Amino acid sequence: MDTNIMLAGGVEMPALGFGVFQTPPDVTTEAVTAALRTGYRLIDTAAAYGNEREVGEAIRNSGLDRNEIFLETKVWISDYGYDETLHAFEKSSRKLGVDTIDLFILHQALPSDFDKTVDAYRALERLRADGRVRAIGVSNFMPHHLTALLERTEVVPALNQVEVHPYFSQPEVQRANADHGIVTQAWSPIGGITSYRGDGSRSTFTDPVIGAIAEAHGKTPAQVMLRWHLQEGRSAIPKSVRPERIQENFEVFDFELSPEQLSAINGLDTGIRGGPEPEAITLETFGRAIPEA
């Protein structure tokens, strides 16, 4: 299996990456350093995570050439609008310490002001045309958001980063992405978000189906879930701050799930979303200023 994914426009991206969502700034540099040392070459962050500066520090200190690392970050809804999003790029690139961002993404659709969403995406198109970013994309866009965006813009998003794990696989979103040639990238790819439910529901990590598949391969449930993503053509960006887990999550290229095992994992979908409802995103409830530095 190829370890890379080709994005629309001919930009190549590692299929397996390292995420830093909810990673505190004071441990981000160490975590990203461990990931790069392990072999990860795709790093995902966001303006709203508050740790772009630390990601950039780890990249600079890694000893790797900048062109060896695929770096993606996201614009928060508070910076939507054409000029505002152009400025958001300047803020992110300054914090990251880079001139070019490999993949620049809108973090959410803003259904309550979709004109701002469209203007923000048009700014991404401008940045791509100017060579400031290599590829552009979106995150947490549902099929109707994609349709509305494509009707008013020129460049099809290269990627849509959405919640995908065995308990919430969003097949309709994945189909819409595929129909448009958009790569699906999974956040919470091993279902970490299912560990925080307070209703007594089982977590993906303790699911007996996943556990049995893991045992059959001599792997962990997390490794099985990541392999599931990769074999189905998705990108996945697991996160951890523990070096042993960072290493474990990368050791997924030496085994193969059978078609029956893939089907069994696909059959675990509950339809229960763990993250915010995309239609409920508003500036009033989710807006917050992104600092200049």
Rank of each mutant, 00 (worst) to 15 (best):
A264L: 09
A176K: 13
E154F: 06
G131I: 11
G271K: 04
P25R: 14
L96I: 11
K91W: 10
E125T: 10
E232I: 06
L36Y: 00
Q231Y: 11
T23E: 01
E72A: 15
F255W: 00
L268I: 05
P276W: 09
G271N: 03
E163A: 03
T204K: 08
I210W: 00
N51T: 03
E30K: 03
T45G: 14
S195C: 08
E215Y: 02
E154L: 08
E172V: 12
D179Q: 15
V162M: 04
R152C: 12
D99E: 15
P208A: 05
K91I: 15
L106W: 10
L146E: 12
L159R: 09
A186H: 05
A129K: 14
V162L: 08
T184Q: 11
H87K: 15
P291E: 09
V11C: 05
P166G: 03
I281L: 07
E84Y: 07
I272E: 15
M142D: 13
A109T: 10
A48R: 13
M13P: 02
Q108H: 15
A123D: 06
S78N: 07
I246V: 04
N249K: 01
W228T: 02
T184M: 11
Q161M: 10
R60W: 05
R122H: 06
L110E: 08
V118R: 01
V75T: 13
V209I: 14
M6S: 14
I5P: 07
F114G: 07
I43E: 05
I77L: 15
F286M: 13
R53Q: 15
A186E: 01
E154K: 13
H229R: 02
D254V: 02
V133H: 10
N4M: 12
K91E: 12
D26S: 07
S188H: 05
R126T: 15
T33C: 00
L230S: 07
R53M: 12
G191V: 03
A216L: 02
L96W: 06
N61M: 02
Q174W: 02
S93I: 05
P259W: 03
T282R: 05
T194R: 09
V27Y: 04
T28W: 01
V155F: 07
L268S: 05
T206V: 13
H144N: 12
R288Y: 15
I272P: 08
T282M: 09
I5T: 13
R273V: 08
T117M: 04
R273I: 08
P166E: 02
D115L: 08
G9P: 13
S169D: 15
